[in-house]
Simulated scan of single mutants.
Amino acid sequence: MTEHTRPRIYGADHTDTDTRPGHEYVQLDGGPLDGQLLDVTGLTADQRTAGAYLITPHSTYGPGGCASYGPTFSRPAGPWVWEGDTP
């Protein structure tokens, strides 16, 4: 039997897997941050539509590179899908 693990929360300590009550999260799908949750509570509707560039140590450009994630037209509420890496 495999143990079920909670998804990691982007930007939180690697041992912090607890979501906060009253916060909204989207799951990141694909790329270097696959499976992590992103807290989108403070984002405006326009920001949620635009997606985000998230710093990651595992991008194509090495540590400090960014991975672009955003909603899809067919599923705007999530998950956000990986669109590629940027320096």
Rank of each mutant, 00 (worst) to 15 (best):
T17D: 10
T17Y: 05
T17W: 04
D18T: 15
T19S: 02
T19L: 08
T19M: 13
R20P: 05
R20L: 12
R20F: 07
P21H: 05
P21I: 11
P21E: 15
G22S: 03
G22H: 04
H23F: 13
H23R: 13
H23M: 01
H23K: 07
H23L: 08
E24H: 10
Y25G: 02
Y25E: 04
Y25L: 06
V26K: 01
V26S: 03
V26N: 02
Q27I: 06
L28A: 07
L28W: 03
D29R: 15
D29E: 15
G30Q: 02
G30T: 08
G30A: 11
G30L: 02
G30M: 11
G31R: 01
G31P: 01
G31S: 05
P32Y: 08
L33C: 06
L33Q: 03
D34W: 00
D34T: 15
D34Y: 00
D34M: 03
G35M: 09
Q36F: 11
Q36D: 11
L37G: 12
L37K: 14
L37Q: 09
L38W: 12
L38Y: 13
L38N: 03
D39G: 09
D39K: 05
V40L: 03
V40Q: 02
V40E: 07
T41H: 07
G42W: 04
L43K: 14
L43V: 06
L43F: 09
L43G: 04
L43T: 10
T44N: 09
T44D: 04
T44I: 10
A45K: 08
A45R: 12
A45I: 09
A45W: 00
D46Q: 10
Q47E: 15
R48G: 07
T49M: 00
T49E: 10
T49I: 00
T49C: 01
A50R: 14
A50N: 11
G51L: 02
A52S: 14
A52T: 11
Y53N: 12
Y53I: 01
L54G: 01
L54E: 08
I55F: 11
I55H: 14
T56H: 02
P57N: 12
P57Q: 08
P57H: 01
H58G: 07
H58W: 15
S59K: 07
T60F: 04
T60I: 10
Y61I: 06
Y61V: 09
Y61P: 03
G62E: 12
G62V: 09
P63E: 14
G64D: 03
G64P: 12
G65K: 00
G65Q: 02
G65F: 05
C66D: 00
A67D: 02
A67W: 01
S68M: 12
S68H: 15
S68K: 14
Y69R: 06
Y69D: 11
Y69N: 07
G70C: 10
P71K: 07
P71R: 05
T72V: 11
F73Q: 15
F73R: 06
S74I: 04
S74H: 10
S74R: 09
S74Q: 12
S74G: 10
